[in-house]
């Protein structure tokens, strides 16, 4: 019975199938990232077994365990197989720098990076779309020109430079906390204050991260809007004497926003990559900052795990974008 029901659910629910299919497609992609990562790891100078042996805090058993786990005494292709299997088991190896298995460090960092990227992502869309519409409606007026000028500036301003300037101004005014993710007494706050605390800490990195994307997205939105506004059906609606607001919000907006949804995934991955640098500058305890420490200390398993996780977040972003696209745009069917 239960099986029947499940099957029925699956059949009737195209969305579910679609998501499953997308998930299946991501598997070879993840494999590909793993391969790239592994090649990089092979290229990296230095033998990690030696590094492990030189560390007095590693027991013989631990070294043997990892040697066996990663088949480090076997030929390279076998090592890759072992590496792959371990990846699937979420076994990422041992961090020399922190003296613990990588898995124990990486989880929290992954989440922190994710919420920072997500916040800037939401900020980007919440600002860029209205701005693009506004600019399109006021085409070639002063406000439009100004927005376009500022978007050039925003696009060309390196995000790290912007973050540095923000930090400087925040230090002058003291309105926002600087660096890190939590205030000192975060633990004592209730859940609501906790969120507020994190949001305040997030403000500078998220804004610094979003400025470039807002500028870019705004330009695309403006272009789309202008194109739609020039189309026949809008002109017809105008001729029919429909009020301006109704034309804009009811007819034009929908058609202008839809093509943007395809950009969702792309935007998200861009933010993810940009977030790494911003994390470092703003001391945000995320994956990028962790990876920098790992690179500096040649903590090779940690580097590779961070990279895998970066790729993983990218895939999640893409997947979410695809789902959103399928939801919004009825022309896309779930197959």
């Amino acid at each position: 019975m239960a099986l029947d029901k499940t099957l029925k659910f699956v059949r009737s629910n195209g969305m579910f199938l679609y998501v499953m299919k997308r998930l299946l497609i991501s598997i070879p992609m993840l494999l590909a990232i793993a391969l790239l990562t592994f090649i990089l790891m092979q290229m990296t100078p230095g033998d990690y077994l030696d590094t492990m042996r030189m560390n007095p805090q590693m027991s013989e058993e631990t070294i043997e365990y990892y040697q066996k786990l990663y088949q480090l005494d076997q030929p390279v292709w076998k090592q890759f197989g072992a590496w792959l299997i371990n990846m699937c088991k979420l076994e990422f190896g041992y961090s020399f720098h922190y003296n613990v298995p990588v898995t124990k460090i990486i989880g929290g960092r992954l989440f922190n990076t994710f919420i920072l990227s997500l916040a800037s992502f939401l900020l980007t869309w919440a600002v860029a779309i209205p701005l693009g519409i506004w600019a399109a409606l006021n085409r070639n007026k002063f406000s439009d020109r100004f927005i376009q000028f500022m978007s050039y500036v925003g696009l060309s301003m390196p995000s790290f430079f912007l973050a540095m300037i923000f930090l400087y101004f925040a230090s002058q005014t003291g309105v926002l906390p600087l660096g890190g993710m939590y205030g000192p007494n975060h633990e004592d706050l209730n859940w609501f204050q906790k969120i507020w605390d994190v949001m305040r800490h997030m403000a500078i990195p998220a804004v610094a991260l979003s400025v470039g994307s807002i500028a870019g997205l705004q330009r695309i939105m403006r272009g789309n809007m202008l194109e739609v506004l020039g189309q026949k059906y809008i002109l017809t609606a105008k001729a029919k004497g429909l009020p301006q607001n109704r034309i804009v919000y009811h007819h034009a907006l929908r058609n202008a926003v839809n093509p943007m949804i395809t950009l969702l995934g792309y935007e998200f991955s861009g933010l993810l990559s940009g977030a790494a640098l911003i994390e470092i500058i703003c001391s945000w305890p995320g994956l990028g900052a962790l990876m920098l420490t790992a690179v500096r200390s040649k903590d090779i398993y940690l580097v590779m795990a961070s990279m895998m996780m970066g790729g993983f977040l990218f895939l999640i972003g893409n997947l979410l974008a695809d789902i959103a696209l399928a939801k919004v745009d009825p022309r896309i069917r779930y197959d």
């Binding site: 930090l167 230090s171 906390p177 600087l178 890190g180």
Partner: peptide, 8 residues
């Protein structure tokens, strides 16, 4: 950032 945190 430590310095700033102290100052704030």
């Amino acid at each position: 950032v430590q310095l700033l945190k102290f100052m704030e």
